[in-house]
Amino acid sequence: MTTALAIKNLHKVYGNGVEALKGISLSVEEGDFYALLGPNGAGKSTVIGILFSLINKTAGSVEVFGIDIDKNFPQAKKALGIVPQEFNFNMFERVFDIVVTQGGYYGLPQKLARERAENYLKELGLWEKRDSQARELSGGMKRRLMIARSLVHQPRLLVLDEPTAGVDIEMRRTMWDFLRSINAAGTTIILTTHYLDEAETLCRNIAIIDEGRIIQHSGIREFLQQLRTEKFILDLRQELPADFSPGFPCEVVDQHTLEVMVDKDQGLNALFRAISAEGLEVASMRNKSNRLEEMFVTLLADSADERADE
């Protein structure tokens, strides 16, 4: 399988002396849906900035589909598309013109750029707004406009930097479906997001950056298998007895709600047996928090401890 992105020992020291990246290495396979996660200021945007030539790297190498950006950046750029975190189009331009113009910057003939612009604006539900100035769009529409713009030259690798920030739930799900469809059609996607449910739902592989270092780089499934315990919230049809003890660490939230911590080795059958033995019926059950979120928080805490020990 072709490697879409190979980053080796990437360093970045800004002019003010801040070392944003401390030797990051990662690789993303073609066709992957990849999550690049990390807390604010971890270095995610610096990695993306270097990838798109908005930030000059200090050391290390970056290859896009085997093309070294130091040797042939224009060729590498043709394979890249970006949806940045901040809106970066001219707010006074028409929606249609923004997308067509971007096609022109990639050398697309006007006719082809217009066809593709129409296609993507329709797919993203913006066709009706094609003659509006960008400033007249809602926040969610502006995000979708950036996605349409990033796709006009049909990049093989699309990088989305928090594409659903500030987007309502319904629109988020529509965008997820759209991203899944272009990934299924062959576009490799790298996603950074603070919504970890989004990463868990969409992505197959993951890298977590903290303080300029990669602290996790694996498949999401393998990563989640490291989760030792999970917290579940059970809604019960009957009132809980005062002395209820199912044999698991638990906390009574109210008379009908129980919060239970289940060890990975224990399984859930034993829990349900204990509850049934008390004559209780479970109406519904859910994770207390997103599993990826739990792992993410644990990992960052461990990373902070390691740094403190050093």
């Binding site: 798109f52 950046f73 060729q75 043709k78 890249l80 970066n88 189009f89 113009t101 910057y105 713009r149």
Partner: peptide, 16 residues
């Protein structure tokens, strides 16, 4: 204006 509004990035990220 393009620099201030960051729309210059549209050009900088392109192969132009």
């Amino acid at each position: 204006g393009a620099k201030y509004g960051h729309s210059i990035e549209e050009l900088l990220v392109s192969p132009t």
